[in-house]
Design a protein around this nucleic acid. Structure first.
Length: 656
DNA sequence: GTAGGGTTAG
């Protein structure tokens, strides 16, 4: 099943190319100042000693440290607590580190434990080079020291260096790897591309694990599972899974994530079921993964059941699990449940706000998104680059170009949160879709990043919408050269021609695709009724009650036509003969799914319908009329956003 | 209350 609701793909511009930001619209005060987060504050009352907030435990420990005669042990505990903070500050560490030096704790004598605690602190801050400096200063190193350093580099995405230290550990340090070493080496593997070092990490690491006799260890097994899953090697994942102690929930959790990573969501559902059958109690991580899977497949009923299951089995709420739950309800079209989870959450962190702001943007509520952003600032949390991306995205969905450019302009001018490729892509999308194609092109050309093909495709789509055939042709030509076998490029160009009524050229594109053997993704829509998911393709007649569905659809089309609906044949497929174009529109998969939902549910029920591609313009218009004549609310999720249809109108305001 | 492990959320 295809992925849904991706973040806009991205690129950038330099500051001179950007349109002048509009006058202040009251958002400026809401922009974070990151400097205030990173600089530890000094309190006059406490004689300028460390009082920065990290966690409440660190705070009280720091005060004890100042008040009482501190010991190396206390310092170790302090570093440990500081490392476990949500976002450890290297500035705090540097000050503690200095205190430890001043007090002579890092001089002669056995200081390996304190040193390792400091090393671990810098590693947790994603500052492996600082960790390395500590490592170099140590007189004695043991396995814990080596493992911590390796983990520091691995988690920072510097896997080549992590591998180097893994080799040095035995050769230079004369320390054998233990059950902590392999998880350290492979940690964070799913989060980044490993490039060339993946080969060495793969089979060779697995061989080392077996040689060390550690293949039964659940943590090592979990690491191997995620390592193979990162390369998409699901068969190897299964082999490892069968080899380890399968009663350990950690391995099961990795296995469920592995299926998810390899786009085998159904395998994940079956693994969860298998786990329950064997009476293994899922932990928070398992529920997090399951919520993500139910959300990505839009399986509301399944999601609810997993939620109920988690309530019975988990007492202590976990922030990640709660945020995953919030996103699951939003992904299933239930923004109200997402709100409920957000409001009942005791541990609201930056990610909770980011998740909720993203959800509001996708559901077309930019005002609520900006209000939440203000609330976030007020609560003392510091928005990060994802917060601003989600906010930009909310403005983009709603066509609030003015507001979006304002935020973006502020990002360019300040040092707080620097725009990444994704922020640029979002702004370029925003400009192009609002009809500012020239400005979008100028931004792409002048930006400091190289535009990637998905971004060009966004602009090509906008050219189709705004009938800019000149620019569209240029972009299409370039795309055909860069990606001659990408079907979407052909379809988008074909759309430009059909929107202009130039059917012959559109048909030519289709025949070029046929000749070159290029096939586009088939469109599918599906709807969950009760505990069953019903899927429809275009002009699909495979459903057991297909005849009734078509009869109902014909009836509905008649009614909406009477109410004013006019079919728009420019959305018909390129290769359909002229006199069959209108009829072909009627049997688009999203219309079939609605016709079925209308039959299979009580009148007045809200229908939630999913589509794997972007909703067709004619279907969007038909849905508005469907909501009018049936009195139903319809929530349609496509691969881009949510549309809430009610009483003849859509929440997107026809801007999508 | 002296140091190190895995899987999750945007």
């Amino acid at each position: 099943m295809p992925p849904f609701l991706p973040h806009p793909t991205a690129c950038a511009t330099n500051s001179t190319s950007r349109p002048a930001p509009p006058a202040a619209c009251g958002l400026l005060d809401a922009i974070p100042r990151r400097n205030t987060k990173l600089e530890p504050r000094r309190s006059r009352r406490q004689g300028g000693r460390i009082t920065t907030s990290c966690s409440s435990y660190t705070m009280s420990a720091a005060q004890d440290l100042i008040a009482d005669a501190p010991t190396p042990r206390a310092f170790s505990a302090l570093f440990k607590a500081a490392s476990s903070a949500a976002s450890p500050s290297p500035y705090l560490g540097a000050q503690l580190h200095a205190q430890a030096v001043v007090r002579g704790f890092l001089g002669d004598g056995d200081n390996t434990i304190l040193y390792t605690a400091i090393l671990n602190f810098y590693a947790s801050c994603r500052e492996p080079d600082l960790a390395r400096q500590v490592f170099d200063a140590m007189a004695r190193r043991n396995a814990v020291t080596w493992n911590t350093l390796i983990k520091g580099y691995a988690q920072a995405g510097r896997r080549e260096e992590a591998l180097k230290f893994f080799r040095d550990m035995r050769r230079q340090g004369h320390v054998a790897p233990d059950k902590y070493t392999f998880p350290a080496l492979m940690s964070g593997i799913g989060r980044e591309h490993c490039g060339g070092c993946m080969q060495e990490l793969g089979g060779a690491t697995h061989a080392q694990v077996i040689k060390s006799g550690l293949h039964n260890d659940p943590f090592v097994g979990a690491s191997l599972v995620s390592m193979y899953a990162a390369t998409g090697a699901l068969e190897d994942v299964k082999l490892v899974f069968d080899d380890v102690d399968t009663l350990d929930p950690v391995v099961w959790s990795s296995m469920i994530s592995a299926y998810d990573n390899c786009k085998e969501e159904e395998g994940a559902l079956l693994t969860f079921y298998d786990m329950l059958c064997r009476d293994i109690k899922p932990r928070q991580f398992v529920y997090s993964s399951m919520f993500a899977i139910c959300g990505s497949m839009s399986l509301l009923e399944m999601g609810r059941q997993v939620h109920a299951h988690s309530l019975k089995n988990i007492n202590d709420k976990d922030a990640a699990m709660t945020n995953a739950l919030l996103t699951m309800y939003s992904d299933c079209g239930c923004i109200n449940y997402a709100w409920r989870v957000f409001n009942s959450n005791n541990i609201v962190d930056v990610i909770s706000y980011n998740s909720m702001i993203l959800a509001l943007g996708q559901h077309g509520s930019p005002k609520e998104a900006i209000e939440l952003f203000r609330q976030m600032k007020f609560s003392g949390l510091v928005p990060d680059e994802v917060t601003l991306l989600n906010l930009l995205s909310a403005f983009n969905h709603a066509g609030l170009v003015h507001e979006g450019l304002h935020i973006f302009g502020y990002m360019l001018e300040t040092e707080d949160v620097k725009p990444t490729y994704q922020h640029y892509a979002c702004v370029i999308d925003m400009l192009a879709r609002s009809g500012e194609i020239k400005e979008a092109m100028k931004t792409i050309i002048e930006m400091p990043f190289e535009a990637e093909t998905p971004l060009w495709r966004i602009v090509l789509g906008a050219c189709s919408k705004h009938h800019d055939i000149g620019t569209g042709l240029k972009i299409a030509e370039m795309l055909f050269e860069m990606e001659p076998y990408e079907a979407t490029n052909y379809i988008l160009l074909g759309n430009i021609y059909t929107r202009l009524g130039r059917w012959t050229e559109a048909e030519n594109i289709r025949s070029v695709m046929d000749k070159r053997g290029i096939y586009s993704d088939d469109a599918f829509s599906w709807i969950e009724i009760g505990r069953m998911t019903h899927r429809f393709g275009v002009a699909d007649r495979s459903h057991p009650i297909s005849e009734e569905i078509y009869r109902n659809l014909d009836r509905l089309i008649g009614s909406i036509k009477a109410a004013g609906y006019v079919p728009d044949v420019s959305f018909a497929a390129h290769n359909i003969e002229k006199d069959r174009r209108e009829e072909s529109l009627h049997y688009h998969c999203e219309k079939l799914a609605f016709a079925f939902g209308d039959l299979a549910s009580s009148s007045g029920d809200t229908l939630r319908i999913m589509k794997n591609l972007r909703v067709c313009g004619d279907c969007h218009s038909a849905y508005k009329y469907f909501s009018l004549i049936t009195g139903r609310k319809i929530i349609l999720r496509d691969n881009h956003r949510f549309h809430h249809f009610n009483n003849g109108a859509c929440s997107c305001g026809d801007y999508w």
